[in-house]
């Protein structure tokens, strides 16, 4: 459906995207990366807002830049929290008109999609008076209003409270189940995992890995996990840990001990007993590999 070949984009001296080769198939695909990874630039290239500096990107086999006919087949929910000063209904209907729908049809479709995203009762209120969660929904509504085949959602869950996040997540999953192809970007791994298992991992303008999230997690499991223990006597704890079978590395820092283990489950089970046995006072125990940064760090080191 989407194919990028040697896709690069630079702004002056800054390289935002560097030789990206990736195919994005049907269904829901998560575009995952830390802030500054190049996700938004990639999405803007995929939606024809930017022109590639090098390489190419095609959607349904056609280049997207300056191809306005192709835009009829896509819907874009931008990251920017920006709107025209209109009511929710007028805003969505207006953009439906721009997508080529006739006036009556645009209004009918706008009412339908606003109902679908849960904004039916609030459709006559000004968008600027909406809460953050409602604004995310109205952005989604305008992306859906002309019934596109592909949806590009840039950080659609950012800034929303847990309840709205759950509802939006369910809505995105439902749209995927209804046959929409969706590319959504996020920097939160578990958020993407709860929506799709197909991901493209980006870091510093490059694609580090793409495919099934389980496969990428399996790669991670081969990598020793790092756990930082803040305690009063790190040397005593280090002596107790050195003989444990799954501890593969120890690093002493002032007031802390960093442990590398290839079996985190076994390690975490053993810690309470060791603390009891040694009488060490542990202030904090932090798994350094739980966040997305660790995934990227590992994949960057691997590559």
């Amino acid at each position: 459906m989407i194919q990028a070949r040697g896709l690069s984009k630079w702004f002056g001296q800054v390289i935002a995207l560097n030789g990206v080769d990736v195919r994005i198939g049907e269904g829901i695909t998560g575009l995952l990366g830390l802030n500054g990874a190049g996700k938004t630039t990639f999405l803007r290239l995929l939606t024809g807002q930017l022109r590639p500096s090098q390489g190419s990107v095609t959607l349904f086999g056609e280049p997207i830049w300056n191809n306005h006919r192709l835009l009829r087949r896509i819907g874009v929910c931008p990251e920017e929290d920006a709107f025209y000063d209109l009511s929710g209904l007028a805003f969505v209907a207006c953009l439906a008109r721009l997508s080529g729908l006739r006036r009556a049809e645009a209004r009918r479709r706008a009412e339908e999609v606003l109902e679908r995203v849960g904004l039916g009762p609030h459709r006559h209120r000004s968008v600027r008076a909406y809460s953050r969660g409602m604004r995310q929904r109205v952005k989604l509504a305008q992306a859906l209003v002309h019934d596109p085949e592909v949806l590009f959602l840039d950080e659609p869950l950012t800034g929303t409270d847990p309840i709205v996040r759950r509802e939006l997540r369910e809505l995105i999953v439902a749209l995927g189940a209804a046959g929409k192809h969706i590319v959504l970007s996020s920097h939160v791994l578990h958020e993407v995992e709860s929506i799709t298992h197909t991901i493209v991992l980006m870091h510093r303008g490059r694609v580090l890995a793409d495919g099934d999230v389980e496969r990428i997690r399996a790669l991670m499991d081969e990598h020793p996990h790092r756990v930082r223990i803040l305690c009063d006597r790190p040397r005593t704890l280090a002596r107790a840990l050195v003989d444990r079978p799954h501890v593969v590395g120890l690093e002493l820092t002032p007031g802390a001990l960093v442990v590398e283990t290839d079996d985190p489950a076994d390690f975490f089970a053993a810690v309470p007993h060791l603390v009891d046995a040694t009488g060490v006072e542990v202030d904090e125990l932090v798994s350094e590999d739980d966040d997305l940064a660790a995934v990227f760090r590992y994949l960057v080191e691997r590559s």
Binding site: P78, F83, G100
Partner: peptide, 13 residues
């Protein structure tokens, strides 16, 4: 930040 709504519609620039 509203240009994205115009630029991603099927209308020639």
């Amino acid at each position: 930040g509203t240009l994205v709504y115009l630029w991603t519609r099927p209308v020639p620039r």
